[in-house]
Amino acid sequence: MGAVVMLVIVSMVTFGIFFQLPKLAGQTTDQLAASYVGKAPTAEAIADVKERLGLDDPLAVQYGRFVKGVFTGQDFSNGPSVEHCAAPCLGYSFRTNEPVLPTLLDRAPVTLSLAVGASLIWLVAGVSIGILSALRRGTVFDRMAMATALAGVSLPVYFTGLVSMAVFVYTFRLWPNGVAYSDFTENPGLWAWNLVLPWVTLAFLYAATYARLTRSQMLETLGEDYIRTARAKGLPERTVIGKHALRASLTPIVTIFGLDLGLLLGGAVLTEQTFSLPGLGSLSIHSILSGDLPMVMGVVLLATVFIVFASLIVDILYAVVDPRVRLG
């Protein structure tokens, strides 16, 4: 329920912002329609586009039409012919005239590959380094790991990305033809090999955050009374750490992981820009900078769906990780 409300709010705000802001910036609907027509717009063509897209209708009417399109589909009169856009209809791009939804579905696998691969790496690396650091607090390992982690959270991903490209692609020539996305279904090996650099670069940033977080959570948990009780009743250290301490420390990590993954699935903007990956992130930047309202709406809605969905999954995972939580 809360998820649906969130989607409605976000879609309304998005629609409002992207519809209203160009107007505030002094752009008229005529100019908007003119850029849609493209080269040499005539007055009739502009009027036609305005009529067809209903650009002069009030904001609420346009939003209503958009929502209706999502559920029942929408008809666009394209001159003499009528184009029908089937049920989950997100409209057509202002710039390329492509339908929005297929374009999104076309770009999504890239972002999905990037986000899922990187998240697996950072989750495993970050959490295990954090746990080891907490257990060996004050040792050389702990100090080194935490110094690296602090450096990791201070480095922007577009800088580490460029450096790793300069080193591994252009100096050592591990990828002699450069890094380009290739489809998983065509060649899984090549798919993984070409994504190694983006994965590691993106994962480094997050692994640093997770290592720091896991360590501090773990240290806090280890100071709790029930850990002392568990030790006092003679449980082996492995059980104390693995069953008692780890579970409690992981709860906040799970929350943040859900949010982070959801956010990334909606488009890893900076990483995709840096490695020129044709995912949702680069699509959204491109659409925003070219004023492609329907495309922007589509990307933002999809991104919000991911975030809302991820937080739902987190709630379910909570019950698995933390025995104190029961699903109602």
Partner: peptide
């Protein structure tokens, strides 16, 4: 829950 970076870009991009 907002894709903040996108919003920020969009906002900065359309300011007159």
């Amino acid at each position: 829950a907002f894709p903040l970076l996108l919003f920020a870009i969009a906002l900065v991009g359309v300011v007159p």
